[in-house]
């Protein structure tokens, strides 16, 4: 997994690319650390360039959600498609996250 960050009006958008798997713990740690930075009210995880996700990475997205909630940040998942969309549907992520196309 690779990620890049761009500012949006009230926070940050993190664009993830490649495959999100159990081996990406260090990348997720960097992303979750961004939630500690002051000033953001809204965080968008852009998943449109993610081709595959496993359940360990789903768990790490949920950890990001817990951290966001504790900081009063709203976390939005954007652009999930293919296998990523299917596995998030199975995991009922729509009940936990705001999801945008």
């Amino acid at each position: 997994m690779e990620h890049s960050v761009r500012p949006i009006s009230d926070g940050k958008e993190v664009v993830l690319t490649g495959r999100l798997t159990f081996a990406d713990h260090n990348g997720f740690r960097s992303i979750i650390a961004m939630f500690q930075e002051p000033g953001s009210r809204r965080f968008v995880l852009d998943l449109s360039a993610v081709e595959f996700i496993d359940s360990a990475a789903l768990g790490m997205v949920l950890l990001a959600r817990d951290t966001a909630i504790s900081k009063g940040i709203s976390l939005i998942l954007k652009g999930a498609k293919g296998q990523v969309r299917r596995i998030m549907e199975v995991a009922k992520f729509n009940k936990l996250f705001a999801m945008e196309d």
């Binding site: 496993d54 359940s55 768990g59 790490m60 949920l62 199975v90 995991a91 009940k95």
Partner: peptide, 15 residues
């Protein structure tokens, strides 16, 4: 559980 961070792997395999 829906919010569980782990424990999904084996049920996915089984499915």
């Amino acid at each position: 559980q829906v919010e569980a961070k782990c424990g999904r792997g084996f049920s996915l395999i089984r499915d």
